[in-house]
Amino acid sequence: MSTIPTFRSHLFRLASAGLLVSSLFLSGCGSKQEKPQQMMPELPVMKVEPSSASVASTYSVRLEGLADAEIRPQVDGTLQAILVKEGELVKKGQALFKIDDAVYREQYKTALAAQHAAEAQARVAKVNVDKLIPLVENKVVSPVQLTTARAQFQAAKAQADQAAATAKTAAINLGYTEIKAPVAGYVGRIPFRQGNLVTKNQTQALTMLSDVNRMYAVFSMSESAFADFKQRYAGATLQEKINAVPPVRLTLSDGTVYQHEGKLESISGGFDSSTGSIGLRVSFPNREGLLRSGNSGTVSLMAGYHNVMLVPQAATVELQDKVMVCVLTEGNKVMKKVITVEGASGQNYIVSDGIKPGDTIVTAGIDRLQDGMVIKPLSGDSAGATAPAPSNQNGH
């Protein structure tokens, strides 16, 4: 009799557990069917207004001195003395090298003596002519004798002139034994030493002399860049456009900006057929001598834009070859628009088409947006987005 209540209580417990499991299952199913409320994204926006911008086109340059003169011997001989040191600043006309002049000095003495002898012969011939003139006039001697004397005088005079030319050449060669600076500047590397034999036909120069009081930054510009250059700067002629280029900044290879500004001076007369580029030259003062020939760096040609629209590059997205922004429309809906980019100024794009003044664009998170999506705009200080300031640090 005691086993029946026990069986019934066991069934009761099983039924209660089943109800609990069913309740939990139904509760779980009910939670899965609840849909979370979609949140409206809060994104920063800004209003686009006309502004001004400066754009820098950057080019790699090679520096050259005002004059880079190779110093070469013009006579053969032994290098007797080196009168300067590498890197020394020398004046125009200062002696740099001395070649043994013993041979050339003797050649000059010999040529000078021959000149004096020839000149003496010419004077004697002139005396003979002067002596015969009155004799011929008085018919004492035949005119043929006077004609012969005059011919002898002309021959003696020619010999004297030839001897004088030979002596002058010998004097020039003697002068070449002392090699002087053709320009003021800094002495380059000297690969020769005292006692070396040097010749006028040798391939290697004695040294290079660089006049670096003014330096030239030389660079090339492609044909398309040159076409852009002609449109970017005001002026009816190319020289007027060159004059319209603002002062140029030079950045050296170590990243430092040279303390003096330069001026674009000239553009070469034609394009290089092998490279398809045209050469330009910017002049920089170098009073302190900080620049040297062969230095490298970059120059930045600045150009100003006025009444243009600046859009932060972070507010754009690129799709294939198109640049797009998200414009805020009625009801805070976004619409993607393709813009035309004329150039870059710092972290901003210069936009010429696709948006108009007064348009509001989304400045962040646009890669997650689709046309027609509604956002909650954050503008002004709350979004941390303001109209982009002009910058001049971008290059092409």
Rank of each mutant, 00 (worst) to 15 (best):
L238K: 06
D101V: 00
V61C: 03
Q33M: 09
V218I: 15
K376F: 10
Q33C: 04
A184H: 03
R281G: 07
R287Y: 13
A165H: 10
V45M: 09
K337N: 09
V334P: 00
L89H: 14
Q38D: 11
H116T: 11
H10L: 14
A234R: 11
I267C: 04
A81I: 05
R123G: 03
L301Q: 02
T58A: 11
Q154A: 13
L14I: 08
M208N: 11
M335G: 10
T386G: 15
A165D: 12
A225V: 08
R62Q: 15
S224V: 14
A125P: 01
T316D: 08
A118E: 04
F12L: 13
K35Y: 01
N213E: 08
L209H: 03
E265D: 14
K337R: 15
Q320R: 13
G380L: 10
P50M: 02
V127P: 00
S142N: 08
A102D: 02
E223Q: 14
L319M: 09
K263R: 13
G270C: 07
L209G: 01
K92N: 11
R281T: 13
I190M: 09
V323L: 07
V327C: 04
L19H: 02
A389V: 14
P390Q: 01
K337I: 03
M46V: 15
D68I: 04
E106Y: 10
S31K: 12
S345D: 00
T237I: 05
G297D: 01
A389K: 13
H306A: 12
A114C: 07
L238R: 06
H116K: 14
L11M: 13
A170D: 02
E49S: 12
Q38H: 12
S54H: 11
P246I: 05
D161M: 11
F271C: 06
S382A: 13
S253E: 04
I179G: 04
S277C: 08
P143G: 10
G380Y: 12
V327G: 06
V183A: 00
G188N: 03
S2N: 12
R189Y: 15
S391R: 01
N394Q: 14
G269H: 03
A170W: 02
N295S: 10
G354A: 02
Y349E: 00
D100P: 01
N196E: 05
T203V: 08
V308E: 06
V282F: 07
Q159P: 08
D254Y: 04
T340S: 11
A387N: 09
N213I: 03
S224T: 15
M208I: 13
I278N: 06
A383V: 03
T148I: 14
G279I: 15
Y186V: 13
Q393N: 15
G372V: 03
Q145Y: 04
